[in-house]
Design a protein around this nucleic acid. Structure first.
Length: 554
RNA sequence: GCGCUCGUAGCUCAGUGGAUAGAGCAGGGGUCUUCUAAGCCCAGGGUCGCAGGUUCGAAUCCUGCCGAGCGCACCA
């Protein structure tokens, strides 16, 4: 029995009690969940439903709990139900009901943990969104790992997800980029406001190789070549390194489209129609202070140019008009000052910023080597890039390290730790279980041990404490995915996998899976192989959500 | 000054209003005649920053204060 199924049974029991007493059924929640008590004396699972319903029903919690317990006790698969404390229901399962989970997992395979919880929700996830003036730096990499994991999580939970990368290949930043490239190609010093760093020389050389006269033409034509070719080469490099990192976007959205298709004007007119536009000092403003922003924001400057914020408005409107009811944007902590104006902008369009717009702010990332943070310096052009991180610790460790912490927590990635092959390196600890389960599978095949037909599976034989713990951990997985997707917190998956890995290792150390020597193969061996394979399934599924491989051997 | 985030074991961090707050590391002690010891087991370690409030119940929600990081453009 899965925890989700048990929760339904608990709710059904409560419904029966309410019906019997003639209570208002509308007081019952749509769904409930059971908890995993830390203290084993509190049973396999616990429900707080009676506590929650006591006030609404006017029945004292323990009295309500007693009646629900009475109903529950008659349900199949439930061994016992006890009432504890103010009205907790402590539930124990039959060994067979618990053990069945191994079969559920193995037979579901890659689909185990998937649900339809967010079916029908259309979510747009925008992340990274670096302009093609340089490689993806380490802050952007955090979002590549977290955003991509989040997209996988939301899809697993049934949402309709589109991932987007927003970029601008025109404007003053790109002009600076082009001038920096041209200067490098001509062996001139980098312009005062230019981009530095080794990559500038490399891109400049690549442009020159493709177009040998580029540096020699008159300045206007020359800059145009460096601008167009430089941006193309840079963007290809960005896409290529993201691809190597396992991250692909559904949509690459160019700011230029907003200009070309008149979307900026359209957005302005929409905002004007909503009554939030005013003009002052020769500029066009959005009155974001109507919705809690610190100050009003300029959309069109007095020189007639649009601001970057105007692009944000038009882009937001574009997303909404494409049918996304949830627009999620991920930004670094150094951009959190944007939240107020973005939320206000959403409200100016007549939307509800609490439900239509979500801005996730991620704290910064440091790479630490030999006890020292490798600091970035824009002046010296020493930015830490995606490649630097991958070169130091590899894709799996990088993705895991970036995804295992709450985005509210700044991360120091210790190069030495994340390349270590020991218990304290979480990605190895989890991957080791993947390799171990695979190894057991190979050895089982060698000695002729197979799971056999599913009707030959005897779940009640999985009654060792460590087997039951492992089964419970496997049962937690679907709820972890839903919670992680709903709260936009992929780190929950990593933390869960570490718990599961621990449960598997303890099972492995206590419960021999394969027969010894010439020992005859029994139903216990087969049942344990089901459990082994179920674990492999969940570890692989969970690592897959994080974009991390589940190796066959290590 | 205003805003956002954070403050949990010596260190790094989990912890969606539930019962006795957890994990890893550090440091101490155990554990390999057959499935990966890259593992496992045992013990120690806490004023959940401080003070109030909300309620059956608060690390979790609210208010204030203290401390740390980041941000407050007709830049992108």
């Amino acid at each position: 029995m899965t925890p989700a199924k048990l929760a339904e049974v608990v709710l059904a029991a409560a419904r029966a009690v309410f019906t019997g007493r003639g209570l208002d059924l509308s007081a019952l929640p749509e769904r409930t969940a059971v908890e995993r008590p830390r203290n084993p004396e509190h049973g396999d699972y616990a429900s707080t439903l009676a506590l929650q319903l006591s006030k609404k029903s006017g029945v004292p919690p323990r009295e309500l709990a007693a009646e629900v317990a009475d109903q529950l006790g008659r349900a199949p698969g439930i061994k016992s139900v006890e009432i504890a404390g103010p009205g907790f229901l402590n539930i124990r399962l039959d060994a067979a009901a618990a053990g069945q989970l191994a079969r559920v997992v193995v037979e579901a395979g890659e689909a185990y943990g998937h649900s339809e919880r967010f079916a029908g929700q259309r979510v747009n996830l925008e992340f990274v969104s670096a302009n093609p003036t340089g490689p993806v730096h380490i802050g952007g990499v955090r979002w590549a790992a977290v955003g991509d994991a989040l997209s996988r999580l939301l899809r697993a939970a049934g949402a309709d997800v589109t991932t987007e990368y927003y970029f601008n290949d025109a404007g003053s930043q790109i002009d600076r980029f082009a001038r920096s490239l041209r200067a490098a190609a001509r062996d001139e010093p980098t312009p005062e406001d230019g981009y530095r760093g080794a990559y500038i020389g490399e891109i400049a050389a690549a442009v020159a190789a493709k177009n040998p006269e580029a540096a020699e033409k008159d300045e206007k034509d020359s800059l145009e070549i460096f601008r167009v070719d430089g941006v193309n080469i840079m963007f290809d490099e960005i896409k290529s390194s993201l691809s190597d990192f396992g991250v692909h976007f559904d949509v690459y959205f160019n700011e230029k489209q907003l200009h070309d298709e008149g979307e900026l004007d359209l957005a302005l007119e929409r905002l004007r129609a909503e009554g939030h536009i005013f003009e002052a000092d020769g500029a066009v403003w959005l009155r974001t202070t109507d919705f809690g922003d610190d100050k009003d924001r300029v959309l069109r400057k007095s020189d007639g140019d649009w601001t970057y914020f105007a692009g944000d408005c038009a882009y937001y409107l574009d997303k909404r008009q494409r049918g996304f009811d949830r627009v999620v944007i991920m930004l670094g902590a150094d951009h959190h000052g944007y939240v107020g104006r973005m939320r206000a902008m959403s409200a100016c369009f007549g939307d509800d910023p609490d439900s239509n717009l979500e801005i996730l702010i991620g704290q910064l990332v440091n790479l630490v080597e030999n006890g020292e943070a490798l600091r970035m310096s824009k002046r010296a052009g020493t930015t830490l890039t995606l490649e630097d991180l991958v070169d130091k610790i590899g894709v799996d460790a990088a993705r895991y390290a970036l995804a295992r912490y709450s985005i509210d927590s700044p991360i120091d990635i210790d190069v030495e730790l994340w390349t270590r092959s020991t218990r304290d390196n979480p990605v190895y600890y989890v991957q080791y279980v993947a390799a171990r389960t695979a190894s057991v599978g190979r050895n089982a095949a060698d000695v002729g041990l197979t799971r056999g037909a599913s009707d030959a599976f005897h779940p009640e034989l999985l009654d060792h404490e460590k087997e039951l713990d492992l089964l419970k951990s496997l049962g937690d997985y679907p709820a972890v995915i839903i919670a992680a997707a709903e709260l936009r917190e992929p780190h929950r998956v990593a933390r869960y996998l570490e718990d599961l890995a621990g449960a598997y290792h303890r099972f492995y150390d206590n419960c021999r899976i394969l027969p010894y020597g010439d020992e005859e193969i029994t139903d216990t061996h087969r049942a344990r192989l089901w459990l082994n394979d179920a674990t492999r399934t969940v570890i692989a599924n969970g690592l897959g959500l994080l974009g991390v491989t589940a190796p066959e051997r290590m």
